[in-house]
Design a protein around this nucleic acid. Structure first.
Lengths: 283, 283
DNA sequence: GTCAAAACGAAATAAATATTCTGCTTTGCA
DNA sequence: TGCAAAGCAGAATATTTATTTCGTTTTGAC
């Protein structure tokens, strides 16, 4: 007699954003593919979605407009406009709390780590874009493209940068070798470097001696070195053919790796784009 | 001969809300009665006006819809929609400095990787500081401090973040175990996790299945999980006690790790500071 | 593999919202 | 007080935006 799936239908559809959000999270798994995408966008970027039209949301997500309506009905609303009303209400409330937050954080002399480190990272990224000569990137890419094999080395704090760079380069199809991070045997490894290769060395204070040693041996074989470091006068910078600086002002004694990571990404992607455009040209 | 009131016509109409606001204030006295009401409403309640329709604005102010159009043209716009676009931009981007916004909007698709990726990283860092609740960091630190041992897992793109976090935590004296990055045996490893431990899982698209498997096994033992990922609905986020979001808008298909790295640093340093202040208190 | 149910995409339609047009009213000046 | 210019309200129109419809494709159970 009675309808069986009462449990699926929210007796009351959500009225506030927190309710909506948890309702979406709860149902997410049971939604079909396209509606999952919609739900994810609403969860991840509610403030953007609040101001966009269905057409622009469709473009941003790659989901058809009609799916937004289907979604809205699946969650218990009459149409997407009702959802957007909730998002907009939430948006106009948010600004109060945000204003409070800025006031609060600017009041306390000692900023929380959250603000301190993000600001420090942003500063260092601005420095990066100002101080890196584009010609340097081109030169680096040229060297990498001509390499028989690309070796990457970096220890301790520099390890994340080195491994990320190696990961991306390998993804572009480059013959990449990444030196192992823990290294009593590091010295021995250097023997696998041969003529025609290129070494990418990442080193930040306090500079790892093992990295310096590998760089020394490499230059001894007349194999070019690309250095990613914090200063032109860093140990490995003296012997390198190309030096990229990713210095960062330290916040509370802890330097951020943000600019170094982004630099590694820039070099790798520039390499990838060069490879791709060459392939296109040949076609 | 020539038209006299050239001085009244803005050569360029305002593009940002602060510009609009001062333009309205400057002209206010010279406006006719109905348009004064419109100007006042836009100055007093810009965030409300951003979300209302002309019809509802008309009702709220007692001014006819057509007056809103006359107003818009008098101030140098083509229609009221242009003004509302400025108001909406202001609402959604109030936190971002206008200098940055200009940079972003002038960002053409063919910008060099250097500018593209640094700007994209800066944007994602701004998002990080806006969307991360300080309480979340506190909760994470508390969980980490109570842990018998801290396990860290992350594969592929997430590996740099995971290894960096583990490196910093170990530096603060935490009992840290980092899962090996290459993992046919990853599943077996999960057995070393025991009661009282905490797992920190880092996962970004495309999500690693191995990471997801370790998280599943861990939650099965009732061991809490801290997730560092890009979305609340990411696979590992569903089971995690605490979720940190470090999403980044991708530039040219390559997402930056900058915000994830900085987030890892913030959590680790917050942990370190908590440890340090405890030590001081005991003295 | 087959079939039925569900999901999907694209285009058509409906609804809403912004803008223009018209004639009437007020204002400012002689 | 008369007159021209500007301002205005209300209705008509154009445009944008949301929603529905329907034929096709995919999915899941058998």
């Amino acid at each position: 007699m009675t309808v069986l799936r009462e449990d699926l239908a929210d007796a009351p559809p959500p009225q506030t954003y927190p309710e909506l959000r948890s309702a979406l999270l709860a149902r997410y798994d049971a939604l079909p593919a396209q509606l999952k995408i919609v739900a994810q966008y609403l969860i991840d970027r509610p403030n953007d979605a609040a101001l966009m039209t269905i057409a622009s949301l469709s473009e941003a997500t790659g989901v058809q407009p009609s799916a937004f309506i289907r979604f809205s009905k699946a969650v218990g609303f009459k149409g997407f406009s009702e959802i957007q009303t909730i998002l907009r209400d939430n948006l106009s409330n948010r600004q109060v709390s945000y204003a409070e937050r800025v006031t609060r954080s600017s009041q306390s002399a000692s900023l929380a780590p959250l603000e301190r480190f993000t600001q420090s990272a942003i500063d260092s990224l601005n420095t990066l874009v100002e101080t890196t000569p584009p010609a340097n990137i081109d030169a680096g890419v040229k060297l990498l493209r001509g390499a028989r094999q690309i070796h990457v080395v970096g220890h301790r704090r520099s390890w994340p940068v080195a491994s990320y760079f190696a990961y991306m380069m390998a993804g572009f199809g480059a013959a990449t070798h990444l030196f192992s991070p823990t290294g009593p045997m590091a010295e021995a490894d250097a023997s696998i470097i041969g003529p025609g290769d290129v070494l990418v060395a990442v080193s930040f204070p306090r500079y790892s001696e093992e990295t310096a040693r590998i760089v020394e041996q490499t230059t001894g074989m007349k194999v070019p070195v690309i250095a990613i470091t914090n200063s032109r006068v860093a140990p490995i910078a003296r012997q390198a053919q190309i030096v990229f600086e990713a210095d960062q002002d330290e916040a509370a004694g802890f330097r951020s790796l943000a600019s170094a990571i982004v630099l590694a990404q820039i070099i790798a992607v520039s390499y990838g784009e060069a490879i791709a455009s060459e392939a296109t040209a040949k076609r």
